[in-house]
Design a protein around this nucleic acid. Structure first.
Lengths: 336, 336
DNA sequence: ATAATGTACTTAATCGATTAAGTAATCATT
DNA sequence: AATGATTACTTAATCGATTAAGTACATTAT
């Protein structure tokens, strides 16, 4: 490994001079700096981020914490889109990304300990369970954090506009003449609560009555579970004309179940999804859904986190609401 | 931050003793070690991976390099499955994961430099372009690496069995009576070459003649591109009875195009995909495809990389071929 | 001519942890 | 009792880089 010591020997100057020259300190003669930079290049010198981090107390490394209940982690397109954009923005700003997990090999540590252990300058947190004490500990610690889709008191977060998204879907369906709306929802997270509340509120505002049996629990990203919920809906004496699925992938499970009952979409049943993953727009029929701005969320999360890291003293916690977009598709039939 | 110095003061011993006690060195009296461990816990001590890495020359951090031409990166399910399993296995073995990219903020560096800069103990490489000089430089460097789906001379790799996978698909289709097979393939990577070669070879072995115009180029994971290729096939005077798509997602593009022409799958046209992503099995009709063992590949990649890192002197480069599995689905009609 | 200022370096401490080498005390051996 | 071995530590160097403080010399001001 080529170190500043090698360069200092080659140039006949002290290590301090080399360090300063490479960092553009003002008290180095231009020609000396030039000579040092040339030698550094000639020797193939690369700074050692580890050593620098130790000295300056900044690692230029941010943690990313993606925890879900199912263990699928980043394989969900919504998460992987966020991860990809967090990564891109962080790299643009000179930061690397490390995954934060519970337990590393033999050592048992929680998220906070892991982040400290790796000297992360900050952490982006996406979780299915913000009640998890380990998540809370990290989010409320002295480590700068940005949470996705959840707001901790006096902390920074990026929120997907679930209330507006659900409202847009309900109104779209309403405008297409539907009055019997069923909602299959995911696990009871804060996101789910917002969506259910918005669904009910918008229905109420539109004078739509939603019988309790039209609201059914399922599991996010689990086609099997949404298939079962769909079957339950189909067994009701009074069926809905439109089914809301917890997400785009769950819609596929519902779709299979509908097909099994000889019900065709959108002729006999209208459906909508949620998330607006790219896949949903290449399916036939094209899914009516609400695109969450996953990419924007990731980019904003990285940007805010790094701003917070670099200006800790003047930082004011803030929440950014990222708006999505209704993707009309063709799974909602106009029955006006 | 609590350091070993704080513990040493609290316990009235030297820092060396603390370090040794916490690392289970044999020359520390059991009761001293116990006292030190208690103090460490009481003070909330956490080892500093950065400082340790600097001293011992091992970071317990491995790089992951996912580069593709489209920029979608990890959003493809095949890649994200690999990433997820690499991550899980690495963490199990006590290693963290950092993404390796070209260029970090203002610094312009190539992959090798980035990996050195972050002191990665090794790197898992997945790339769409193994001709890229930056990839070659890293793969052939002194840094331990494991490549996915590509074999560099005298290096370790994990290979998906593309030859056998394609053969299985062709034979399955053949057994269902098909003799006119068209193949829409992805960009000309080494993987693609293997699949094309296996496709042709298996066809030849089965005495199937494949007219050159039945082999059409497209782009991986791009429904639009495979849609265009599908249209071109449909405009031929003599049409195929079965179309092979470069991957499961591309199949969706083809599906739309077929529908647009009033062609129904599998009644009027049989199709097969490749990859076997979970999604493919919840689609209606269920896709006939070949599941690549993405999870196994990721797990093996992490395992071999870490073995190589921990036993560099006795390490023999090796390639592991991960077999997949034919998923029969219902998109191939028996026209026997 | 002398003091003040500026320039271009060097010295040395430091970040947190590890570890080879050294030491003092105890214990065993003959 | 003297020697050797063992135990349980400490000392001090080190990993690679940064940075406050110091220094030598040249330049400018009075």
């Amino acid at each position: 490994m080529v170190t500043i010591t090698d360069i200092s020997k080659a140039c006949g100057v002290s290590r301090a001079t080399v360090s300063k020259a490479l960092n553009g300190a003002p008290d180095i003669a231009p020609k000396t700096a030039e000579r040092i930079r040339e030698q550094a290049k000639a020797l193939g010198y690369l700074p050692n981020a580890t050593a620098r981090a130790l000295k300056v107390g900044r690692s230029y490394n941010i943690g990313v914490l993606f925890s879900d209940t199912t263990g699928g982690g980043i394989t969900h397109e919504y998460f992987s889109q966020i991860l990809e954009s967090v990564k891109a923005e962080a790299e643009r700003l000179g930061y690397d990304i490390t995954f934060i997990s519970k337990d590393l090999g033999a050592m048992s540590m929680d998220y906070y300990e892991h982040a400290k252990y790796r000297s992360c300058d900050g952490v982006v947190i996406a979780s299915a369970d913000f009640q998890d004490p380990a998540i809370v500990r990290l989010a409320m610690s002295e480590i700068p954090t940005v949470t996705l889709d959840y707001l901790f008191d006096s902390r920074t977060s990026i929120l997907s506009d679930n209330v507006r998204g659900m409202e847009a879907l309900v109104r779209f369906v309403y405008e297409n003449g539907h009055r019997k709306l069923a909602f299959i929802h995911g696990e009871m997270t804060s996101v789910t609560q917002k969506r259910i509340a918005s669904f009910k509120k918008t229905c109420a505002a539109l004078k739509i009555t939603v019988p309790p049996e039209f609201i059914r629990p399922a599991v996010y990203h689990d086609p099997r579970s949404s298939g079962l919920a769909t079957r339950a809906l189909l067994e009701l004496p009074e069926k809905p004309t439109c089914i809301f699925y917890p997400d785009d992938l769950s819609f596929l499970g519902g779709m299979s179940e509908l097909e099994r009952h000889g019900i065709s979409v959108p002729k006999d049943m209208s459906v909508v999804g949620y998330d607006g993953i790219p896949l949903s727009q290449v399916l036939r029929p094209k899914l009516t859904t609400y695109r969450q701005g996953a990419t924007e969320m990731g980019t904003e999360a990285a940007r805010l986190l790094i701003e917070q890291i670099e200006h800790p003293d003047t930082w004011l916690p803030q929440s950014i609401m990222v708006e999505g977009e209704l993707l009309p598709g063709s799974t909602v039939r106009n029955i006006g």
